[in-house]
């Protein structure tokens, strides 16, 4: 039997909002330590990896490893019935389950809703994501990053990200004209979620499709900060921590000069 009880149902709502527009069906791998989800968009340009450790749950029981093929639209419909402060319980048999139960308990205990969602067969294999030493890490406000991606998509469909020692520049151009947004490395890190820290090993200059970045920033409500990791010959990584018990990591392949 797999059973996991989350005190703050709102977190699961946010996680679904973060993945459902990028990956319709995803494999939720549940083992004794954590729930991990990995899925690629249909064009294989972007990948999302979500990890939520057992410690995030009020109660977590996983007698045998089980993989739940979830349709994220169905799951999202159920979670739309949940309030942020509802308790959410996920339950599934651990011998090739064909469905998963979700129970929502209102905070005052007066309302209990239970749903059963059919699991889907997904035959995508898990990708091997190599450990990479990145040339640059940019940590910044997640709201700021969402704003930059939204504003720049008015000017073009791609953003060029260039990192130097002192700053990170986001540029986009199209028929409207050219836009550059430069963030300077914050000298003083007084309020972490408002400062920008650039950790640079060597300069990077990469271009990415804004359409995907604007899908990634749906995870903004999950964390005040976001970390971008960049290297010339590697996909961009956009990471949102889930408190200290997990993360949502997006990987995006760059656009390259012909």
């Amino acid at each position: 039997m797999f059973e996991a009880k989350l005190q703050q149902g709102g977190l699961l709502k946010k996680i679904l909002e973060s993945v459902k527009d990028l990956v319709v069906d995803g494999l939720w791998d549940c083992d004794g330590a954590a729930i991990t989800l990995q899925g690629m968009d249909s064009s294989h340009v972007a990948l999302v990896e979500m990890l939520l450790r057992a410690e995030a749950f009020e109660h977590y029981r996983c007698d045998r490893n089980v993989t739940l093929g979830m349709n994220h639209n169905h799951l999202s419909k159920i979670l739309k019935c949940a309030n942020n402060d509802d308790i959410v319980i996920l339950k599934a048999a651990d011998q090739n389950p064909d469905s998963c139960s979700l129970i929502l308990e209102s905070k005052n205990g007066e309302k209990t809703s239970d749903f059963v969602v059919s699991l889907v067969r997904i035959d995508t294999d898990q990708l091997g994501i190599p450990e990479t030493e990145y040339s640059a890490h940019v940590k910044m406000s997640s709201g700021e990053f969402q704003r930059i991606c939204r504003d720049l998509s008015q000017f073009g469909d791609a953003v060029q990200i260039t990192c130097s020692k002192q700053d990170v520049k986001f540029s986009s151009s199209g028929e409207t004209g050219k836009a550059n947004i430069t963030l300077t490395h914050s000298a003083t890190v007084d309020k972490e979620e408002e400062s920008v820290t650039v950790d640079l090993k060597e300069p990077v200059d990469l271009t990415f499709a804004l359409r995907f970045l604007n899908l990634f920033t749906k995870a903004t409500p999950i964390s005040d900060t976001v970390t971008l990791s960049l290297s010339q010959e590697a996909p961009l990584v956009v990471e949102y921590k889930i408190g200290d018990s997990g993360h949502i990591r997006y990987f995006l392949a760059p656009k390259i000069q012909e």
Binding site: M40, L47, D125, L127, G128, P130, P235, A253, E258
Partner: peptide
């Protein structure tokens, strides 16, 4: 203009 490449260049598709 620049061409979008896929992740299969970077991550081994098993």
């Amino acid at each position: 203009s620049k061409r979008q490449i896929t992740l299969s260049r970077f991550f081994k598709l098993p």
